[in-house]
């Protein structure tokens, strides 16, 4: 009972810590770390509830749920990172085309990515502050 409560409460604290960081910090990488810590808190709560302090074998159903959850969390992280890298690419291209003197071609991979060239207006909207 005490052990289950201790571990479950730690999971809830992890969830709250991740939620706070997700709301407060702006860079996407920090938001992703916060999101993963939130998820870990939920998984930790599941594992704590499955645990039996009397020494009998723990409940296998939450374990299986957490296993699938871990894989889904990582695939969501991978997708978010890929989206972020495209955003940063478009951002860098927009800022470099704005600041370089006219006509100087940037050694970027403009042709390969095939992204539509963002207008300066759209680039500002998409801009993700890096600090």
């Amino acid at each position: 009972m005490t052990a289950a409560f201790l571990y479950g409460a730690a999971g809830l604290l992890l969830f709250a810590l991740g939620l706070w960081s997700l709301l407060v910090h702006e860079p996407l990488l920090r938001k992703l770390i916060a999101f993963n810590i939130m998820g870990s808190g939920v998984f930790h709560l599941f594992i704590a509830v499955a645990h039996r302090s009397d020494g009998s074998s723990p409940d296998p159903v939450p374990h299986a749920l957490v296993l699938t959850g871990i894989v889904v969390a990582v695939s969501a992280t991978a997708l978010a990172l890929a989206l972020n890298s495209r955003l940063e690419e478009a951002d860098a291209k927009a800022s470099s085309s704005k600041t370089t003197p006219s006509g100087a071609p940037e050694p970027n991979t403009t042709a390969r990515t095939g992204l539509p060239k963002p207008s300066s207006n759209g680039a500002n909207r998409l801009r993700w502050p890096s600090r």
């Binding site: 998984f43 594992i47 704590a48 499955a50 645990h51 723990p58 374990h63 871990i70």
Partner: peptide, 8 residues
């Protein structure tokens, strides 16, 4: 692992 969930 301490909580008896080696798979996870």
């Amino acid at each position: 692992a301490r909580l008896g969930a080696p798979d996870v």
